[in-house]
Design a protein around this nucleic acid. Structure first.
Length: 216
DNA sequence: CGCCAGGGCCATA
DNA sequence: TATGGCCATGGC
């Protein structure tokens, strides 16, 4: 079977239905980075509460200077708050090397930055790619639980591991940062709208049977 | 009440 | 390298 047509077809269907999204729910690049860490295995509504607890003062400087216990309290609603407080500290320490500057970070090539991010304790594949794509606009495809479920529904024969899926998307759908941003955004938006906690995919532009979920 | 959410780390075999 | 336990809150 020709999967290449499938992925492009899926993208066009979603794009036609929702339009360009260019999406990540955050006001600044640094808020994107923080959100990417806080949302690890966590409902976004809980991340919003944590972000709101910063009262508009969220900044790398604050994260660096804030005592651990106080940082834990602020982000508590996002869950796993003890780990994530350290993760935020670790990540921001890395960001300090670049003067907390998006411009400075973007001087370096994607491959090197990705390695640097993956060396940070608390930053795995998805968090690294989310930061690279949504905060720094690098052309790297983000694979998350929604992406895996989509592939399962498509019954595409790919190992459901992170790297094979990412490589698969990037090889079959050549695109820039804008397209990868849009594609992942569309997958998430559509899944939230039609594929969560509903036995049947009612009104989904992909016309999937969404009662099928990841096993294990 | 139980299940789950836009993961990642670590120990174990 | 590949599983499994663990981390924790809030919505439903």
């Amino acid at each position: 079977m020709d999967n290449k047509l499938d992925l492009i077809h899926i993208y066009n269907k979603l794009l036609n239905h929702y339009g360009e999204l260019n999406w990540w729910p955050a006001d600044t690049p640094y808020e994107v980075m923080v959100g990417a860490i806080l949302t690890q295995n966590t409902a976004w509504s809980n991340v919003e509460k944590a972000i709101a607890n910063f009262s508009g003062r969220l900044s790398p400087e604050l994260i660096e200077t804030l005592p651990i216990p106080e940082l834990q309290e602020i982000i508590r609603p996002s869950g796993f708050y003890k780990q994530k407080a350290l993760y935020l500290k670790n990540f921001t320490e890395w960001y300090r090397q670049y003067g907390y500057s998006v411009e400075s970070v973007c001087q370096k090539p994607l491959s090197q930055l990705r390695k640097e991010l993956l060396d940070i304790r608390g930053v795995g594949f998805e968090t690294a790619d989310s930061i690279l794509l949504y905060a720094f606009s690098y052309p790297t495809f983000v694979v998350d639980a929604y992406t895996k479920r989509l592939l399962e529904r498509l019954q595409i024969d790919v190992k459901l591991n992170y790297t094979p899926i990412k490589d698969y998307f990037e090889s079959e759908v050549q695109g820039d940062a804008r397209l990868y941003n849009n594609y992942h955004s569309l997958i998430v938006i559509n899944a939230k709208k039609h594929c969560n906690k509903k036995p049947i995919c009612d009104g989904c532009p992909l016309e999937f049977d969404c009662k099928f979920r990841l096993s294990g």
